[in-house]
Design a protein around this nucleic acid. Structure first.
Lengths: 122, 122
DNA sequence: CCCTATTGACTACGTCTGTAATCGGAGTAG
DNA sequence: CTACTCCGATTACAGACGTAGTCAATAGGG
């Protein structure tokens, strides 16, 4: 089931997570223009996502409406875990430490996370 | 330079980050046995990493000694940023929040990170 | 009813990846 | 000198990916 969503496919998923159901046409129109994809490319990606059961489609007249089957949260969680496991021995602290060391954290980030953690303990 | 290191290649890099320089043979012996790679496979990966300048080799008699050119920290940072940008709009807080929501944080994690952040402000 | 525009399905194709066998040259044991 | 061995380099090959063209069916416009 966890058929591993590729990068290009992910771009399509983002569209459907944002709004669904949509027709292939709609999706093509909403994909990040950065990509510069042709409609056909988007259709192929939709087809592949269907094949891996990441999305589903229901007939609507002579076209299909696509909707995500995988929740964004689940995908995001999976990817995050994969990275943390692979690079930080499965622990979040080293990641935060790493970002901190490289000055990738703003004062605001720090406050936000502190507040968040405080809440967690409550 | 930033030739994007693949997953299999990454496994080889981990060995060299752990200890270097090493011969191809040494690397093959130290790669995670989980992978079950033949020596040839490791050699191919070393070749590809050379091609993308992620590692370098120096002649030592009849063989080569391989050493990393890319620092682990840089690699790790790059991958982390990529994930955070792609999935969390470039901000760390949502990632932490996400992990928290899914109960992926232990009490110890929380304390550690709090301590870390406290230090940062000092 | 016939032509054209639309839509999903199928096909294409070069690149990258994972995995490995093979080839050719250089020492090494006789 | 000769057969063998060790090593890096070259080649192989299937499956995933990014990207897109073509085909067949269908639904409207005349």
């Amino acid at each position: 089931m966890a058929e591993r969503i590729s990068d290009a496919e992910h771009a399509v998923m983002e569209v459907l997570w944002e709004e669904a159901p949509l027709t292939a046409q709609d999706v093509a129109e909403r994909v990040d223009p950065e990509r510069g994809w042709s409609t056909n490319t988007v259709k192929t990606l939709l087809g592949r996502l269907l094949a891996k059961s990441a999305i589903a489609h229901e007939e609507q007249g002579r076209r299909y409406l696509y909707r995500p089957l995988v929740a964004r949260d689940d995908y995001v969680m999976g990817e995050s875990r994969r990275l943390i496991d692979r690079l930080f021995g499965g622990r979040l602290t080293p990641l935060v430490a790493h970002l901190a060391e490289r000055d990738e954290l703003t004062a605001q980030d720090i406050s936000e996370i502190e507040a968040l953690l405080k809440d967690l303990k409550a």
